[in-house]
Design a protein around this nucleic acid. Structure first.
Lengths: 125, 125
DNA sequence: AGACGTACTTACCCACAAGTGAGTACCCAA
DNA sequence: TTGGGTACTCACTTGTGGGTAAGTACGTCT
């Protein structure tokens, strides 16, 4: 089956961290979960404009395997699943903060634009 | 021609930073250049066991385009090219430090091993 | 009765990141 | 004269990350 579980050997810590964050949407998922604390599948899908259901699930599963997110299933009539960050997910998110700051600075430098839909969500925090 | 130059639109700062760091060897190149200050092409190749010449050059060129590394050519009999970090490269590397720390911690947790050759190369200087 | 919402799974496809291997032009040491 | 070192370029191939679209099982809304 596809991806995940490289689990080293790594060249260094950054390599190990990147292995876990690599994937088009993982950093965003991390950020969403950190921001909202806990989110349902469909909420995440709506929060990440452009993500496909396949990739969302795949990434969530990998991040669960890597111990970054917690998956809570409620056996209810309309299915309900809640995702949240584990302590490792939280600490990873914290470790990503300086990188995010650098990236924001870079966006300012090169005059890159933001994805519009996200702006609303970001502006509210 | 291949890669590079996505230049947004980005979802957020992390997205923008990842765009620049994405690539199998970029973080390692960053680390090497930061560690040694300035390195020649062949030195980098030897310092990153397993990298192909094609990828090394490709990544170096992209990082140069992104304003992370400086390329100094000496028009000498045996060609000589020196690579070093720009101030943006240095600051990016600094922003990656917490991530590296997190990754190292994760390696300890899951008991991942390091690539051996790198250890020797690092120890030697 | 049909559309829509929940949370997925499965199959198929393609673009591109990355690997392989050879070639270039020049010089030096054995 | 063969081999190795400098720093690349170019053509070809492969692996896979990610996209698209459909199906599933159940329930409510209109």
């Amino acid at each position: 089956m596809a991806t995940s579980a490289r689990r080293g050997p790594y060249f260094c810590g950054i390599d190990a961290a990147m292995d876990v964050v690599a994937g088009k949407w993982k950093a965003l998922i991390l950020w969403e979960l950190h921001h909202y604390g806990t989110r349902r599948f469909a909420e995440l899908r709506r929060g990440l404009p452009g993500v496909s259901e396949k990739m969302l699930i795949q990434h969530l599963r990998e991040m669960e395997e890597d111990g970054l997110v917690h998956r809570e299933v409620y056996r209810e009539v309309p299915p309900k699943v809640e995702y949240s960050l584990t302590e490792h997910g939280v600490s990873l998110n914290a470790a990503l903060a300086p990188l995010g700051k650098w990236g924001t600075e870079r966006m300012r430098r090169i005059g890159a634009e933001k994805v519009s839909v996200d702006v609303a969500a970001t502006a509210r925090r």
